[in-house]
Design a protein around this nucleic acid. Sequence first.
DNA 1: TTGTAGGCGTTATCAC
DNA 2: GTGATAACGCCTACAA
Lengths: 329, 329
Amino acid sequence: MTIYDIAREAGVSASSVSRVINNKAGVKPETRKKVQRLLKKYHYTPDAAARGLVSQSSKIIGILIADIRNIHHTDGAYYIERRLAALNYCCIILNTGDDDDSRAQAISILEQRRVEAAVLIGSSFQAESVSQAIQRHLKDVPVVMINAFIDLPNVYGILSDEFHGVESCVKFLTEKGRTHLAFVRDCYTPSCQQKVEGFQSGMASLGLNPQRVYDAGETTISGGYQATLQVLKEHPETDGIIFSVDLIAAGGLRALYDQGISVPEQISVIGVDNSIYGEICIPKLTSLDNKTFDSSIAAYRVLVDCLENKTAARQMILPSAIVVRESTP
Amino acid sequence: MTIYDIAREAGVSASSVSRVINNKAGVKPETRKKVQRLLKKYHYTPDAAARGLVSQSSKIIGILIADIRNIHHTDGAYYIERRLAALNYCCIILNTGDDDDSRAQAISILEQRRVEAAVLIGSSFQAESVSQAIQRHLKDVPVVMINAFIDLPNVYGILSDEFHGVESCVKFLTEKGRTHLAFVRDCYTPSCQQKVEGFQSGMASLGLNPQRVYDAGETTISGGYQATLQVLKEHPETDGIIFSVDLIAAGGLRALYDQGISVPEQISVIGVDNSIYGEICIPKLTSLDNKTFDSSIAAYRVLVDCLENKTAARQMILPSAIVVRESTP
DNA sequence: TTGTAGGCGTTATCAC
DNA sequence: GTGATAACGCCTACAA
């Protein structure tokens, strides 16, 4: 069903049908009525691709995520999709995984689809390969990165200050009298690296040992569980552990529970993300809120500003804040 | 950058460029080389919309989800997106929310984008309004529903047998000597309704009181928490609670913990979804696995079969199975 | 082996 | 008010 089919049956030209569809003036009321009836009768819907071809605007936004199942990223994708849908944009969402090739590949797909903008969610996009792919394939559209930044003229970054966030976690724990602190990381993304460095900086500035960083190996409950056992084995005097994400902290809490160690009395625990995982834990997990939601809002705003050709700040850093629950005194 | 730009610089016609791009035979090797060099030089990428227009195939699949943040649905979206991407399909993902209008609206958007197929994830799409929208806007493309079914010639349903699943949970608990059972629901979707009815059927067939169904009011931890308090207040003799989803079960576990009731000794608890939430709980949650992953695989298979014009089963029911952890004896 | 012409569904610019 | 006509970027006969 095309406008020509409608036009033929209405006994008018395609242009008139187009005018009616787009609510343009200059159509005799009765013609308009007649066409509208047929449009409704056949549930006619214009072809977005054909429209995009002539209007030179796809009305498509590309969203790239390493893995949409990562709860920390899903929220952003949801918020942005919802808001953009209200503006008649369609979002194509691609899970890129974590290797350079498939990220670059995904960016090239966005170009094929002639997206009007792209949103890259997750710090793992802060990579040279991504920068190159953007220069090759998305030079002319705004690219908004959440929790990452690349210094290119069309790239905007919304960052969470996880470095100072974790630093403040260290301070928070020491103020509660905990000084034998350990940090458990889950990966080596730029974001996680920031957290580690925040820990080390916080410890060093307080004259404490900044070297006690452990690796969960994977972002899983059991990863956190095993790493915690190792922490306990190597340093039984530990009285506080900071985990790079809530999920591995949940594994850590379980390890402590199994070892008969009470939280927060004997050991305090802090996670990062302020996710629902922390609410499920017993005791409920104190967590560094890295402002997922605020980041999404900010990213959306920047995106819309770019789309409307307004200027927007290239880089924006959101402070993170500790949400105190039951796993710390 | 279009094929004409490339053609001009190469001193050939656009069709030759097109041939090279699509790896068609009948191009002099040196011409091909020359064109390929320019293609590379300018990082040329063909416009998918223009291609789709002539080939009459958008290579776009639409995925509709009530809310992508719902962990139970995210997994399916991830799996399907990944697999389809490997087949050069692009997925547009729309969060529809739970009201009829926006669902129908979303379906109409899929038609505008001329999707080649649609995947509807979640039982809430099993509704008359959706059926009508499909008949109006997606009559000619395969529609695969996960956890739902609508009887239309182009619609395929992958269902999880939650009715018998919950029924078996009842049986499981009674075999462990628990007979004062309650069921806490989180919503009124067709899926949740199935679970409730499975509970009632299971209880009735064992000569037990099938009426003890409670409503958490919302799919949240606190919803489950409050409902559980109500269960305890109204029926202190309760020795087993089944929750319609893990998330509210997590709230339930917390309520029991706060009340000093030991799980599973005094009260056994079962959730549904076999999600990561259950792994975080202490004690770890026994849960009815409704085969999210298997459903995704099956949905993908059906989808591909349809895309390849093979015939596929219109309806498919996957048995669910109890995964026993620590919250039951 | 190559180029020309026509068309995919739509919108915009003209004449009429 | 209305209707040809020419784009938009690409592909595919068909002709050369």
